[in-house]
Design a protein around this nucleic acid. Structure first.
Lengths: 202, 202
DNA sequence: ATAGATAATCAACAGCTTGTCTATTAGTTG
DNA sequence: CAACTAATAGACAAGCTGTTGATTATCTAT
């Protein structure tokens, strides 16, 4: 960014570039996506791009921040849950993730998929970990977490993202309500038992 | 491939190119890796590359096949297991995956990581699914699998790969024996029960 | 409303990679 | 030895990149 950020022209340009990137990605044109493609789609001059971003990765970072802020707001629109009482209070949080995905379905399908961007996927997983799973670990386990817990956390986050990708790839074979209930009722309870027990083989 | 495949010169060239690709990737030079880099590393002329591969992706495919054949052999070096009896018979299979990873540790760390290749990661996950997890589903469940089972399978595979990436990223914080036992004894039993039970919430 | 500041445009540039030619050299096989 | 074929070397057009300088359009403060 070498320009103002508060100037209406800058805001407009950045918005157009973000939208162009998201729309082109949604059209499965992510691999080998060029600055030319983006600026053409946005109806802007290629030179203008470099006034705002150093390259495509920086624009993607901007898109990522924008989408994640939105998802954060979507998720925290729900009441904070008391995890101790009942695991099913998680259901609205899990549902809101899927509802958010539906808003940019084509974009997420491409960028999280085989032809997508591993950096974005990693950030996406970290966000879900931060928003949903780490609070559970903290509420259950106040002391320093051991490697078994850390590994279990990673297993659960990766599994959750894997299920999301499956759901997107398969073009939503079941409803948000169905998949959310399946995850909350059948998958996460096992995760909890994993966190509370300490079966260290030594 | 426009050349013989059985000619000693071709075999030598392809081997050199595969090794160059794997070594350069291991040195964290995967993103923006060029044909020039590879042929220079291999000590070959750039034109020679195109006699054997149409592009980097095709060379990576060749590397993938080679590594996966080796992993398949590593895994099947163990006795076939009867999953019904005891889940812990899986331990040698899980261990052999980690021992295989150690042989090309730096390569796998890069290509499965944030700067890596999602296509490779997807194939890697599919291979583990085929070699380890799908046989379990089939042994437990002869009828057509429902979406809950399919989802559980995806969850388990993704979680397993997630743990592998965690282990590589953290530079092997625990031994192969420790992580394999933890996975087999504490993680998989919970999730594998998912693959056989029918908790359809409807 | 005007003047100064700043963003957007346009044309052009060198640098790099790609994929494909040719012609020539080196190695393999019968 | 003779034929076949892989490897090399140099060159080419094409495409994208990131930057420059000059010009036009738009914003903002007075």
């Amino acid at each position: 960014m070498k320009v103002s950020q508060s100037d209406p022209r800058s805001i407009r340009t950045c918005t157009l570039l973000r939208e162009a990137m998201i729309n082109l990605t949604a059209e499965k044109k992510f691999t080998n996506l060029t600055v030319q493609d983006i600026t053409k789609q946005a109806g802007l001059n290629r030179t203008t791009f470099y006034l705002h971003y150093s390259g495509i990765n920086e624009l993607l970072d901007d898109c990522t921040r924008t989408l994640f802020n939105q998802m954060r707001a979507d998720i925290y629109g729900n009441e904070l849950f008391d995890f101790q009482s009942d695991i099913t209070v998680l259901e609205p949080f899990v549902s809101s993730v899927f509802y958010h995905l539906e808003q940019y379905e084509d974009f997420y399908r491409t960028i999280l998929g085989k032809q997508g961007n591993p950096e974005f996927k990693s950030l996406f997983q970290a966000l879900l970990s931060e928003l949903i799973f780490e609070p559970i670990v903290e509420s259950k386990n106040q002391q320093e977490i051991d490697w078994q817990t850390e590994m279990g956390l990673r297993f659960t986050c990766s599994g959750f993202v894997g299920v999301i990708v499956w759901w997107l790839e398969k073009r939503k074979p079941v409803s948000v309500k169905q998949i959310s209930e399946q995850i909350v009722c059948d998958v996460l309870p096992d995760y909890l038992s994993l966190l509370s027990q300490k079966n260290v083989k030594e």
